[in-house]
Design a protein around this nucleic acid. Structure first.
Lengths: 207, 207, 207, 207
DNA sequence: CATGAATGAGCGTTCATTCAT
DNA sequence: CATGAATGAACGCTCATTCAT
């Protein structure tokens, strides 16, 4: 069995999710019709219900994939013995790597997940809290080790760091930009990290 | 006719917009029914159509109010002769002041406007570009005057700065937090500005 | 305002219920489409939802009307000072009168209410129990006064009496018969009462 | 091949019918899904279509089984030389015996067959007419032999007799009752027959 | 200005049925 | 025989919008 051949249930689910990402990216969750998604996936709309209980369920699957991918990375980062600043850099790169590989997924995260309050079930909110909590741990670790300033509330630092990443992605998403090559990606990541660590202020002016 | 008395058409529009903000905050734009908004505003739903051509029009009004409020502030900031860092601080405070005074408005901005790609008409997109452009001007002015480092892409700095504010607000919005007093507000604003200017890195560690 | 003029909400609800009765009679509850009912009522299907929350709600209204009509009669019968046998006769006549005046209503009672177990909510079941309980009271009263035999279980007698009426109606419903004149109605009522009181057995043969 | 072993096609059909009866009893014909029935029968839903052309066909089979069982009994009763009253008693017992042995079958008869007007095809209607006709024959025979009063319309007597049985069963079906032992069964049968023959009226009061 | 009855496009979802394997 | 993936007709219901009063 080669790599492109259909692989049963999981493969079909993957195709449907990918189609859903594309349609949701184009129209938003509410305007995305099951029939649009099915057409995009090359199947009849009835079949979507063979694989997902309903529209919300399909969306939950997408959501789960997103968060679990992120949590897995955080887990891996946590295991490694390395500089907290380096860990942040890997996190930044993860977002931009994912954007290069699967821009629709990041788009949907930015537009439909990261801010969506309207469809926020308890389960969905827990993902946020989990994410924030893990990030804060990372920051606090850096404060303990002396990499980051300890005079600032770690929660605030977490917000600022994540906000920088998110808004970068947002701007690209809103203007439907592509990241032009790995060089630009590295430059963006470096800028975010540089500003976060050393600030945008002119050192020559510092008192 | 005194200033606090109802003032006919404009007053009614204001009431409807405020009701719309509340409902959209609770249910999101798509789930917000005209009838919900009308009930919240204490009028019949047919009357909404006397004041607004349709639902999109009502939403556009809210959007316009938001952006024009922001642009007006930027205009005022621009006029004044003062330190670019001070200007940024005023911008930060504007967001948090507004959140204190009218949390629903900020909530809707965060959840339905700042990221919404689904309902993005050309006109709406232009607001973003205008905002980004003005912000970039502010940053560039600071770079020119030596307040900000010139070795960093001003667009990137803009993203990072706005992202920090947005994510702070997002976190509060998602968890339905209130800002506890002006002291907390000042602390948040200071942290954002401090990190943006001087970074989160520990100075003692800097090479 | 004359008698046939529309009389607002209640009148519209009545028209919709009557249309629903006709369609449900023809196709059964499950096959009865809201759009059929609306067309029959001469309105758009959306309007049905102005007056009833949903299909089940509309059906519940019909159900309530049926049972409350019946209970009201029982109440009236109960008030009067008269022979229990006479009371039974009035009950019989009520069913057949209703069948003459509004055959669809009785049809739906027979085919969709009196036996329907599939859609039996607790509320609906309570109507049955209430009906059975009132009927049993009537029978027991007759047993106490010596009109009916006391050696038979009053619940059983209730079943037999109601069964006789129901099956008569069923046969007419199934074959879409009309009651031909008041004479036939009286003959049917008399037969039911006569058999219930004196039996179908030949007196000459009685031991 | 012995009698209790599976017997291929027929045995499978039987299993499916029995599963269908259970599901239809629980949810009614319209709500009963082929997939429910298949799961209950322990087979895949596609297989149902090997044994039955479609859902209506499966239901027709159940219907046929019911009526043919009843007609066969009537045939047997007809053959025997015995008192018409005794024949009626056997008929009554047949219903209650069947209810004891296969309550789902009787339940479906009561709720989905005996009154169903919605799905009434010509073929299905004919079963009713056949049943009524045979019953009427039995009654008329009794009238001819002097067991039953001749002054009453035999069709009416048929209705009353069948109605008594049906309503008894209905009450049990609606309240999901079991018949508690053969004693209760005999008591019910005796009551029905006694009332049908001699009436519920108090003999002492008879003029 | 104000009301709410009326309309109907639109969409999610169900489920009987077919058919390739 | 047996499976269950695939299809699509069908229908309940929502809600923005119009308009007579």
């Amino acid at each position: 069995m080669n790599q492109t051949a259909p692989q049963g249930r999981n493969e079909k689910e993957r195709v449907i999710c990918q189609a859903a990402l594309k349609i949701i990216k184009e129209k938003g969750y509410h305007r995305a019709r099951i029939s649009d998604i099915a057409r995009e996936a090359g199947i009849s709309y009835g079949l979507v219900y063979h694989y997902f209980r309903n529209k919300a369920d399909l969306f939950d699957m997408i959501l789960r994939q997103w968060w679990e991918g992120l949590f897995q990375l955080m887990e891996e980062i946590d295991q490694k013995e390395q500089d907290p600043a380096e860990k942040l850099k890997q996190l930044i790169l993860y977002f931009f790597d994912t954007y290069q590989a699967d821009p629709e997924r990041v788009n949907v995260f930015i537009t439909e997940i990261s801010r969506s309050t309207a469809n926020l079930t308890q389960g969905r909110l827990n993902y946020f809290k989990e994410c924030m909590s893990r990030m804060k741990g990372l920051i606090q670790e850096g404060q303990a080790s002396g990499t980051f300033r300890s005079d600032l509330n770690p929660r605030y630092l977490t917000y600022i760091f994540l906000g920088a990443i998110e808004t970068f992605l947002s701007a690209m998403v809103l203007e439907d930009q592509k990241i032009k090559g790995d060089a630009q990606k590295a430059r963006i990541a470096d800028t975010i990290l540089e500003v976060f660590l050393n600030g945008a202020g002119n050192p020559g002016e510092r008192s």
